[in-house]
Write a protein that binds this DNA or RNA. Structure first.
Length: 928
RNA sequence: AGCCGAUUAGCUCAAUUGGAAGAGCAUUUGAUUUACAUUCAAAAGGUUAAAGGUUCAAAUCCUUUAUCGGCUACCA
């Protein structure tokens, strides 16, 4: 068989995905077992404008590992993909393009035409992220791909909106909201990003008091808002001002008179202890204004210029120009007391970074009282969702819920789900699922629909059930037209008698980042419980953040992002996936190409191990019966099969706990250390020499058996690696002799052959052979000691050594059984076994476990000083450990209270150390 | 301001309920009749940020401090 000397990922990546997808391997229908247990994940829908970043790559890797692992276990597995319409982002993108190419604004086009353009844009460019997801090898079911503005999902949005409105959980009202003057829309609290500015100013303004010469000084960071002041407030306990409560202020620059009120909200310690109150432009002032029945005076337009109410001097001025002018005018009037430097944090637009303006505005809100209780109750009564890692996310999630405020859901955009509310000429509102229903309610009055759309997160909040055809007629729309031909047709499609919603909701696990726990995770919990009376998911895996090599967050503005696609190009998809999966669950980690390089090397190692097996595969085939050993099997075989099964058991155990990095570690060391470095080396002679000729004392049948065994072990290892490294393992698995769909898990018997449908090795407890592992350990120790002596005594590798080993009878037998292998790997010519050590003085010596000793005669080669130093170093090491152990064992408390097996373990170790020390010391004596 | 996390070998990170501190990279030394130099072998490298406490036993639990990071709220 022709096989390249090193792994080139490109070819595998280009061919296998397409074939898997075409054969329907990703769809749950590939599973032929009618009783299969479902396993499902919904992808956190990336923005349709987005392109893949490391965060996605990390999350997708974890989801794909879980999906492939469960699929190989015979679960009816669905990983549902899709994208989010991403209101603001997408609208911005198209707006920019429009301006650049046609010098037009969205208003030039009008709503209908503009929206059409966005759809065109989506069709043209929106597929990028989905192509990238394919590139990652993600085994998502494309036949169920969803978009948040699909017909059925939009219908779900309307249904939820109307239903919540009817129950009074959605309301329309005037509140202080976060207004972005650039995007000209309101934002929810979660879309506000605080930014600290060191160059802030605190301006002290003097307000004259009516019928008095006194002035009251207020401090403000936003002087322009004074034009909308409707009171000044002081603390009722503040003796400085108690006589002023109830007095009237003559508000400068306006012709208004405003009262001085007393309110506990005011902190007497801060500033002057007197606060200007602008109910229409500050959330606290708004609340205070309600308590004191103050007028709400809006002085700004939606682009943060001042309006007519601000007065003719200010009308039309930008807020910052108006601010300067207010200060200037106060200065002219002699009412500017002072300006202090003041570090301030300003609310900014998450997307465009513009400083937001708190402004009184009429918007739609979701009342969160009941919603919060839904989520809190689930957490309290069922510990749901189960976060992984649990600390700190459960606590953070719960704390946040406890302090939750109402959610602003309207957005002044055109791209999104337009709010299903209509107004008649008198301003009466009619909320309805369709225009017709609204007309009926309004008795055919002249209706106009609300201009606003819903927050993107409103529709994403329904993702865990709207994607499964909720509120749709069953058996329709859940599967799209045209995709049926693409799906594997030899396998029986299940008759869709139950809907996807019944089968796949709740999903098993959600994998996402910390940043959207509140924005998305919490809302899915509430909405799903509320509307389908189910949990959206059982578990939530919160991934860490991928940082750059300096520990900084990757960001576009900093330009320090690492593009996953570049890494794929350079090192291959599988190496990248393994690197991501190898990061510890939930912890941030710094990206280093060196780590991927290491995994690229690992991929090459797997390639070459397979290459070796294939070059010696005449007469061999993948045959799992070859892994069942009889009593006469060699220690090496018993050992590797024990290790294989132990690895399988532990990998499954770790994956169950979402400890991906531990699983990766186990597989890496099993494959590289156990399988390649030891097993292949140990059995090399038995299986190699190209054709099936007999070696000394070996029959062709023995050789075929040995070849079958190693190739079968390899096959099992490839299966275990498959969820992490799908392309490489598929490429190699298909090359193994006699692989076919006969090797599939029984749920996939009729599917075209692929490793992804074989069964994931679970490991067999009865195949674990601790005795063989211990015996092999002794062989490994012996060889390691020989290598150590060789290296430390600077003995040429070509020098064939004679090994004198003293050991008890059992151990002698182990060494004798493996004599040929030991001689080969240790590059020795002779192995002399005896009860007591009998070697010339000019020997290098080492103490082995279980009282065994090694001596290598080095007549003429030995440097006695060097040998003495070497032995002394070893004695010193043992003594440090020995004295710690004997200290511990002479501690009564330890002996009494520690678990008995622990005490025994230490005692045995101490005896071992003592015997080795004794042996080494005797050797030292002999050298003096 | 509050809450949370992190601090382990030169670097990047592990360490399952408290029970002999481990990998990979980098370093040093040696190896090329080989499945793989994207390789193999060997060595060296630690007062687990600091101080105190609980315990027979602490990287792990508690207290304090320092540095870094995150989140939430608010500062008129």
């Amino acid at each position: 068989m022709e096989i390249e000397k090193s792994y080139n990922p490109k070819e595998a990546e280009e061919t296998h995905y397409e074939r898997w997808e075409k054969n329907g391997c990703f769809a749950p229908e590939i599973n032929e077992n009618p009783d299969a247990v479902p396993f499902s994940i919904v992808i956190p829908p990336p923005n349709v404008t987005g392109s893949l970043h490391m965060g996605h790559a990390l999350q997708h890797t974890i989801m794909d590992v879980l999906t492939r692992w469960k699929r190989m276990q015979g679960f009816k597995t669905l990983w549902l993909p899709g994208t989010d319409h991403a209101g603001i982002s997408t609208q911005l993108q198209v707006t920019k393009k429009l301006l650049k190419e046609e010098k037009k604004t969205r208003w030039d086009l009008g709503r209908e035409e503009f929206t059409k353009r966005v759809w065109d844009w989506k069709r043209q460019y929106g597929g990028e992220i989905t192509r990238q997801i394919r590139r990652e090898g993600a085994s998502v079911d494309w036949s169920r791909e969803r978009f948040t503005m699909d017909k059925s999902l939009s219908k779900a949005v309307r249904e939820v909106f109307c239903s919540l409105f009817e129950q009074g959980w959605i309301y329309r009202g005037k509140r202080i909201v976060n207004w972005c003057p650039k995007d000209k829309t309101v934002l929810s609290d979660l879309e506000v990003k605080e930014e600290t500015r060191k160059d802030g100013k605190l301006v002290y303004l003097q307000y004259p008091i009516k019928n008095s010469t006194r002035k009251l000084t207020v401090a403000t960071t936003r002087p322009e808002t004074m034009l909308g002041d409707s009171a000044v407030a002081v603390n009722p306990k503040d003796v400085r001002y108690s006589d002023l409560i109830g007095e009237i202020i003559l508000l400068p620059l306006t012709n208004r008179e405003i009262p001085i009120v007393a309110d506990e909200y005011v902190d007497a310690e801060f500033g002057t202890g007197a606060v200007k109150i602008t109910p229409a432009h500050d959330p606290n002032d708004y609340e205070l204004g309600l308590r004191h029945n103050l007028p709400q005076i809006v002085v700004m337009n939606d682009d943060a210029t001042m309006n007519a109410v601000a007065g003719t001097d200010f009308n039309g001025l930008d807020r910052y120009i108006a601010r300067a002018k207010v200060i200037e005018k106060f200065d002219e009037l002699g009412l500017l007391e002072k300006i202090d430097d003041y570090e301030i944090s300003l609310p900014c637009c998450e997307r465009c970074k513009t400083v937001l303006e708190p402004i009184l505005s009429e918007q739609w809100f979701v009342k969160m009282d009941e919603m919060r209780d839904i989520a809190l109750n689930l957490m309290k009564t069922e510990n749901s969702p189960r976060f992984s890692p649990e600390v700190p996310h459960t606590k953070v999630y719960t704390n946040w819920l406890e302090n939750l405020k109402d959610w602003t859901i309207s957005r002044q955009l055109w791209w999104g789900h337009q709010i299903p509310a209509w107004y008649d000429d008198l301003g009466n509102v009619f909320v309805a699922r369709t225009f017709e229903q609204a007309k009926a309610k309004a008795q055919n009055a002249n209706l106009t629909q609300d201009e606003d759309v819903l927050d993107t997160w409103f529709s994403s909040g329904l993702w865990a059930f709207s994607t499964f055809g909720w509120n749709e007629k069953r058996d329709t729309e859940t599967r799209r037209n045209g995709d049926k031909e693409n799906v594997f047709s030899a396998g029986k499609f299940l008759k869709v008698s139950e809907s996807d919603l019944d089968v796949f909701c709740p999903t098993d696990v959600l994998v996402t980042g910390r940043d959207i726990i509140f924005l998305w995770v919490s809302r899915m919990v509430m909405m799903t419980k509320k509307f389908v009376d189910k949990k959206p998911f059982n578990d939530v895996i919160i991934t860490g953040t991928v940082l750059d090599k300096n520990g900084q967050r990757m960001s576009k503005t900093k330009g320090n992002g690492v593009d996953p696609l570049d890494v794929f190009e350079k090192y291959g998809v599988d190496a990248t996936r393994l690197t991501l999966a190898g990061s510890s669950t939930g912890a941030d980690f710094r990206w280093r190409d060196e780590n991927v390089e290491q995994n690229r090397n690992f991929a090459n190692k797997i390639w070459n191990a397979t290459r070796f097996c294939l070059l010696n595969s005449e007469g061999a085939k993948v045959d799992h019966s070859s892994l069942i050993l009889d009593e006469n099997a060699s220690i090496a075989d018993k050992w590797i099969i024990s290790r294989l099964n132990k690895t399988a058991i532990n990998v499954n155990k770790e994956l169950e706990k979402y400890q991906f990095h531990t699983a990766v570690n186990l597989l890496y060391h099993f494959f590289w250390d156990d399988f390649c470095d030891w097993y292949i080396e140990l059995v090399k002679d038995e299986i190699s020499s190209g054709n099936l000729q007999e070696n000394e004392g070996q029959t062709t049948n023995d050789k075929g058996q040995a070849r079958t065994r190693i190739i079968t072990i390899l096959e099992v290892a490839l299966r275990m690696l498959h969820p992490f490294m799908p392309f490489l393992t598929e490429e190699l698995w298909l090359k193994l002799p006699y692989t076919s769909s006969n090797l599939h898990h029984e749920a996939y018997k009729n599917a075209p052959q692929t490793i992804m449908l074989t069964s994931f090795p679970l490991g067999d407890l009865s195949a674990i052979d601790e005795k063989a592992e211990a015996e092999m350990q002794a062989v490994i120790e012996l060889i390691s000691k020989v290598r150590n002596i060789r290296a430390e005594m600077s003995i040429k590798p070509s020098e064939r050594l004679s090994l004198h080993v003293s050991a008890d009878g059992d151990l002698q037998k182990v060494f004798a059984d493996n004599k040929a292998r030991i001689l080969k790997i240790a590059r020795a010519s002779n192995l002399i076994l005896s009860e007591t050590l009998n070697a010339p003085k000019a020997s290098a010596k080492a103490a082995l476990s279980r009282g065994a000793e090694l001596a290598i005669p080095l007549e003429g080669l030995i440097d006695f000083d060097k040998e003495r130093t070497r032995l002394e170093n070893q004695v010193a090491k043992l003594e440090i450990e020995g004295s710690r152990l004997s200290g511990q064992l002479s501690n009564e408390g330890f002996v009494k209270q520690a678990p008995a097996e622990k005490v025994v373990e230490l005692q045995e170790r101490l005896i071992e150390i003592e015997s080795q020390t004794k042996a080494l010391n005797l050797n030292l004596e002999a050298l003096k």
